[in-house]
Design a protein around this nucleic acid. Sequence first.
RNA 1: GGCGCAUUCGUCUAGGGGUUUAGGACACCUCCCUCUCAAGGAGGAGAUCACGGGUUCGAAUCCCGUAUGCGCCA
Length: 487
Amino acid sequence: MRSALETPVRVRFAPSPTGYPHLGNIRTALFNWLFARHHGGKFILRIEDTDSARKVEGTVEAIMESLQWLGLNWDEGPYFQSQRLAIYHEITRSLLEKRHVYLCYCSPQRLETMRQEQARRKQPPKYDRHCRDLTEEERSRLETTGVSSVVRFKMPLEGETTFCDLIHGSVTFRHDTLDDFILLKSDGYPTYHLANVIDDHLMAVSHVLRADEWLSSVPRHVLLYRALDWQPPQFAHLPIILGPDRTRLSKRHGATAITEYQRQGYLPDAMTNFLALLGWSLDDRTELLSRDELTKHFSLERVGKTAAVFNRDKLDWMNGVYLRQLSLDEFVQQAMPFLDRDLPESVKRPLDKSFVSGVLSLIQERARTLAEVPQLTSFFFADELQYDARLLLGGKLETKPAVQAITAASKRLAEVEAWDAAVLEAILRPLASELGLSTGKLFGLLRVAVTGCTAAPPLFQTMAVLGREKCLQRLNTAVEVLSAHSD
RNA sequence: GGCGCAUUCGUCUAGGGGUUUAGGACACCUCCCUCUCAAGGAGGAGAUCACGGGUUCGAAUCCCGUAUGCGCCA
């Protein structure tokens, strides 16, 4: 067996453009990238687009965009398998010459009835090798009729193949449980097995890190490498990521496309950190790791074997941690596009940067995603607040004392010279006792009057950012709301 | 149907025969801080380590079955 040190590390991320990349795909990409960076190797991007029927428009772009968003830069590629058909054909020809493969002329109908028969007899579906030993005459007769053919691999009839997976250890498959799988389809396109093996070899891929579901295909691949006289790469099959219902991730689980997480306001670094911990861990306590720390410590030995359920709550928590770690300027820069996108249309654009900065300083530690920012701050930008009078009273106050309290506060605030949080507090705190109200009641009342919400950033800081004019105006409105309300 | 892989708190995980009364994180609960919400701090609850057999003085850790889940083969 080759050791990782002998050959330069070259890994690849090889998605099919059949759908937008989701968490599972990207996690595979991340592990490949981390492995490459850890070993100072190369990370290759290869698009396995040989199944034209399932190709989905725009996915190649989405794949590249997703990788770029997460900072998973590739060193080579993208290579496209659809542009390498001549290579696959040539190598298939050499396999034919060496009799490792054969042409199969069986019609889809024949195969279908065969399968049904096998299913009826509860036998494993397996090609019956009808064309494996055709005589030359039979073959040329079929050729002249112009029937289409596929190329199948001659699976050894006995024996077994054992290989060592870097994560699972030694795995063995008996040949008689495997069938003569197809290498080249009748339309001339290679199957995954053929194209994948050829490309990995030609691109000098040293380690194949891919999802667990390919584990059962490895014996086929190993046998193919042998037939071609090539040295197989090292394999590492990664545990898959499951949805909350313990089934594989799919469109049913909502935001599957990784770009959707970008839209929902997750930071690339948080996403990377979170994904890295799905199937890998550093030790028994470290949860937060920077990109550099991840590449420094990443190793296949610490990759687990069991499928992991994606836990949105933990992602949210982690994103909040990363959001709080940002400097205010960085936070403003990150949040600005979300404000632009989601604040009501009535709010004038462009937004004033210094006002936004003041606003955001108050909610940075309260937001878990950037997409929450507009909701958390919309009252700062609104012209008029919408709320019910009962919200002001909070079930604790009568209308009259409430009106008195607001009026008294307004009066004092109108006279304040310096409009900042400390001064406001120095004015309003004593007012509570003067009015015979608890600070909780007074501040709660003012909070609703000024923000329209019962939960908001600290009152004095909020008022300081909002500015005197807007605060007084809103207190006024609150009095009107209360007056119109009878209890 | 055959083959393969997996199985530790709800979830992510630590754990490679004795240091384990199974550790950490998210979520949950309580308390502290406090003008609300967060953040932060302190604590709590939560896993007979899927089950059953072995091996061993001793097993979550090794072996064998069973079950369940997932995957591959069409």
